[in-house]
Simulated scan of single mutants.
Amino acid sequence: MIRSLLLAGFACGALALSAVPAIAAPETLQLTPGNMLAQTHSSAILFTITGTYRQLAGTLNFDPVAKTCAVDVTFQTRSLALPNAIVRGQVMSKGFLDPDQYPTTSYKGTCTDNGTVLAGNLTMHGQTHPFDMKVTYRMDGNTLVGLDTAGTLDRYNWGLNGLQMMVGKMIKVTNDISLNGKPPTPAS
């Protein structure tokens, strides 16, 4: 009888342990264009211009349980793909991004506010200023499959003073990072 109770107790304990979800360990992800979709969205006279960085490299360290992260990523300025040659010529001009003088843009930040804000510094056009973005976690069932960030910057703070009559002052920045090996897709 005691043996039966011990076996029953052991079986219940084993069942209870198997119901506890596995704790995800902190991870490091090498950021590439294959798993990070980095875009800028600028308002022009009648439409929005979206640019997509085609060359980037960096790391994302994250702990999905603790909701902590650290990102360090560098973008090749000249790799910003734009809708057409006219727009590209203007954006790459000396009065705007000027990749000949400023070949890279970089961002370093950490998650704050229980993982809901990515707070950091953006270096662009030779100037570094604080730049924070909202963090959204993409789930597929109970599995974390992506991190998305979005923020808006005042381009004049970074010395992007050109094209004042054609491009709005505020630029939205979005980053969609895939954690499941599938290509990233823009957040909806």
Rank of each mutant, 00 (worst) to 15 (best):
Ile177Tyr: 02
Leu7Met: 12
Asn161Tyr: 12
Tyr156Glu: 13
Leu29Thr: 08
Met92Tyr: 02
Pro130Cys: 07
Asn175Gln: 06
Leu82Arg: 02
Asn61Leu: 13
Thr32Pro: 02
Thr174Leu: 02
Val173Tyr: 01
Gly159Val: 02
Asp140Val: 05
Leu118Val: 06
Val87Tyr: 01
Gly95Ala: 03
Ala16Asn: 08
Ile2Ser: 15
Ile171Tyr: 04
Gly9Ser: 10
Ser79Cys: 00
Gly126Phe: 01
Thr112Phe: 00
Thr28Tyr: 08
Gly162Lys: 03
Gln39Ala: 09
Leu80Ile: 04
Met133Ile: 09
Val65Pro: 00
Thr110Tyr: 04
Asn35Glu: 07
Met92Gly: 09
Lys67Asp: 00
Leu160Glu: 05
Gly58Tyr: 00
Asn121Val: 11
Ala57His: 07
Thr32Cys: 10
Lys67Tyr: 03
Val145Asn: 09
Val135Ala: 01
Ala44Thr: 00
Val145Phe: 01
Gln76Pro: 08
Ile86Tyr: 12
Gln39Cys: 10
Thr116Ser: 13
Glu27Ser: 14
Leu37Arg: 08
Tyr53Trp: 09
Pro130Ile: 03
Tyr107Ala: 06
Asp140Ala: 15
Gly51Tyr: 04
Ala11Asp: 07
Ile45Trp: 14
Ala38Asn: 10
Ser106Asn: 02
Gly120Cys: 04
Thr143Asp: 15
Tyr137Met: 07
Thr59Ser: 07
Cys111Val: 10
Gln55Met: 11
Gly58Cys: 08
Ile23Met: 13
Asp154Cys: 08
Gly95Asn: 08
Gly151Ser: 04
Leu147Met: 13
Ala57Met: 04
Tyr53Cys: 10
Pro64Thr: 03
Gly168Glu: 10
Leu31Ser: 00
Trp158Met: 09
Glu27Cys: 01
Asn157Phe: 11
Thr136Trp: 08
Gly51Ile: 07
Thr77Leu: 03
Val71Glu: 05
Gln76Trp: 13
Ile23Ser: 14
Gly89Val: 06
Ala85Glu: 14
Thr123Asp: 07
Met1Asp: 15
Asp63Met: 01
Cys12Asn: 05
Gly89Ala: 12
Met165Trp: 15
Thr28Ser: 14
Gly34Asp: 11
Ala16Glu: 05
Val73Trp: 08
Leu60Ser: 07
Gly168Val: 05
Ser178Asp: 03
Leu37Met: 01
Ala22Ile: 12
Asp100Glu: 14
Thr152Ile: 10
Pro183Lys: 12
Leu82Gly: 08
Arg78Val: 12
Pro103His: 12
Gly162Pro: 09
Ala85Tyr: 11
Pro130Gln: 06
Phe62Thr: 10
Thr77Glu: 03
Phe62Ser: 07
Met1Ser: 15
Ser43Val: 12
Ala119Gly: 03
Leu153Glu: 00
Gly151Thr: 02
Thr52Asn: 07
Gly126Ala: 05
Gln101Ile: 11
Leu15Ser: 10
Phe96Cys: 13
Thr116Ala: 12
Gln90His: 15
Arg3Glu: 13
Leu46Asp: 14
Gly151Asn: 05
Thr149Lys: 01
Thr48Cys: 06
Asn35Pro: 10
Leu179Gln: 08
Gly89Gln: 11
Leu29Ser: 09
Leu17Glu: 04
Pro183Gly: 11
Ala150His: 03
His129Cys: 05
Lys172Val: 01
Val65Ser: 07
